[in-house]
Write a protein that binds this DNA or RNA. Structure first.
Lengths: 138, 138
DNA sequence: CTCATTTCAGTTGCACTGAAATAA
DNA sequence: CTTATTTCAGTGAAACTGAAATGA
């Protein structure tokens, strides 16, 4: 039965499409040695430059706790450095390393490929329409 | 900065819209005394008639473990009955009670209202386009 | 023997909360 | 004093896994 109540609900279709995107992205990032939070934090760092964890959390839409843990992981991998901020000793300054910048460049390509795969059945016109409608819903 | 990498990704937009739908639906169902799984299982039951937990899980897209737990809850509330299947003693037969059918009718209205609220900014033409594109992605 | 069904305990990734420590 | 930042431990819902018990 492909015509259940569930499958006719826009909210269900939305959840299905989102789950597919989520799964695909997680898979491809994992194959590149990263988790979703890693990409979001590295991208935020690239956009802001060296920044406090609080600022990064805002930019990457990550909770303070998750920022702390993700920075731990990225620092252990040598992709970022964490040092005390001399101007405000409550803060850490997180900075991208050269290796982190290279890693991010790779992840950007992976993420772009996932978008293409996700939208592969839509024309570029349809893609634009879809994203426009999505924005008006979200 | 509203133009972060993240916010330009279709997969991110999709996740945001889906999260909004998810939150809205959960909220409204909770206000009606139900959880998402309750609605999905009751709707499946209405579509199949009395059925085994395995069949319900397939229809409602619920894991066997979650079906077992959800049936526990719905049976405790008097919305469904669980009885051994005389034709196959491995199975339980789950059936909707009158009270369960009334509850489902209410939840159907709640869920429909959520769809309307979710799509409130789109014309009916746009809604059709959106759902069609979603199907081609999911 | 195998396969299907149900139950139970446990796991995983994600998002978040509360409280403490530190310092502006 | 209050507020901001970071850290840590823990919570909660969602989705799933493995193993055992039962029986087709």
């Amino acid at each position: 039965m492909t015509n259940s109540r569930l499958e006719r609900l826009p909210s269900w279709q939305l959840a299905q499409a989102s789950a597919r995107a989520h799964g695909l992205l997680g898979e491809r990032l994992a194959a590149a040695g990263a988790r979703r939070y890693h990409y979001r934090l590295l991208a935020a760092l690239d956009e802001l430059g060296p920044a406090s964890q609080a600022a990064l959390g805002k930019q990457a839409v990550l909770d303070r706790s998750d920022v702390a843990e993700t920075v731990d992981e990225l620092a252990a991998a040598g992709y970022v450095t964490r040092s005390p901020d001399p101007d405000d000793r409550r803060r850490n300054v997180i900075a991208l390393t050269a290796s982190g910048a290279a890693h991010l460049e790779h992840l950007d390509a992976v993420v772009a490929a996932v978008q293409d795969e996700l939208l592969r059945d839509l024309s570029s016109r349809e893609r634009a329409t879809f994203v426009r409608l999505l924005r008006r819903i979200g």
